[in-house]
């Protein structure tokens, strides 16, 4: 009997990993096909992020640095979409820059989507007057330093090639410090860490950040130390923000799949450990 159990456990431990993959896929796809609504409460750090935007006077300039690419689209694009809706709705001026080559198309997509929303369209927002996308710039921290000194020389042209000197909105925005709030949407490095360390303190930025879940624990010390006024981490952060802004989107919809994925991984860790210790114990 013992031997039988031992052999079964041994075989279980040597399980072909394709079964694991299949289970994972099922855990994710099923809730997406059959949606289950699971209520959740927004995280305090996300609420503070939301608050930081709500507290801005109308017409303030918000600089958004979108430093991510399609790789982290599912986590951050819902945030960016909700962010633009929120900023436009609050009648704030928006300047966007990107340190990642893959970001500008995603940004344009999010802006276009926000402009078409029924609560934004009547506002008649104009490109270059109410918002502008400066596009991508390589050089990482060097760009941050450059922007702190002079955005006009760091980004001589906007994404569509218009010289910055001809953009009305940019006349109010000569250096990083001219923005009333700095929002960093970050998918890795260069991202929140670099912005905080290179620019936040040095140029005295009021800064909030949305980052991928992977980066969130790294950024919590900055949030705790007050260097970030608010922080939204991962798909949960995006879902929280969607809730707060009142625009449940793809992040909110993904939370059920997220739940099952986590539970499956926990189950794997538990089963793997139980089987491992039982077989090891017997062998001795």
């Amino acid at each position: 009997m013992k031997a039988l159990l031992l052999r079964a456990l041994g075989r279980f431990l040597a399980l072909d990993r394709r079964w694991i993959f299949l289970l994972m896929a099922l855990c994710i796809v099923t809730p997406l096909i059959l949606p289950i609504g699971l209520p959740f409460t927004p995280d305090p750090a996300v609420r503070n992020l939301h608050r930081a935007i709500e507290d801005l006077p109308e017409g303030s300039v918000v600089l958004v640095s979108c430093d991510y690419d399609p790789g982290s689209k599912p986590e951050l694009q819902p945030f960016t979409e909700a962010l633009f809706r929120h900023l436009f709705r609050r009648k704030l001026k928006v300047v966007v820059s990107c340190l990642w080559a893959g970001a500008p198309p995603l940004v344009n997509q999010a802006i276009a989507q926000a402009l078409e929303a029924e609560d934004i369209r009547p506002l008649g927002l104009k490109d270059k007057v109410d918002y502008v996308n400066l596009g991508y710039k390589d050089g990482r921290q060097l760009v941050m330093l450059g922007m702190g000194e002079n955005i006009h020389s760091t980004f001589p042209k906007s994404n569509d090639g218009t010289p910055v000197s001809q953009i009305p909105l940019m006349q109010r925005m000569r250096k990083l410090g001219d923005s009333q709030l700095f929002v960093n949407v970050s998918g890795g490095s260069p991202g929140t860490k670099e912005w905080v360390e290179t620019a936040q303190g040095r140029f005295g930025l009021r800064m909030v950040a949305a980052c991928t879940a992977v980066m969130a624990p790294d950024n919590i010390p900055y949030y705790e130390a007050g260097q970030l006024l608010g922080l939204a981490g991962g798909m949960k952060g995006s879902a929280d923000y969607e809730q707060l802004v009142g625009l449940p989107g793809s992040a909110t919809r993904g939370m059920a799949a997220q739940s099952f994925g986590h539970l499956l991984i926990i189950a794997f860790i538990a089963l793997g450990n139980v089987a491992f210790f039982m077989t090891r114990g017997r062998k001795r």
């Binding site: 994710i28 796809v29 982290s72 991928t212 879940a213 798909m235 993904g254 986590h262």
Partner: peptide, 22 residues
């Protein structure tokens, strides 16, 4: 804690892919 968050991030990405396919 980092591990927990990383799992969360990776699963989000897979969700995103399946959302695109669906």
């Amino acid at each position: 804690a980092s591990f927990g968050y990383t799992v969360m991030g990776r699963i989000s990405l897979a969700i995103g892919r399946f959302q695109d396919l669906l």
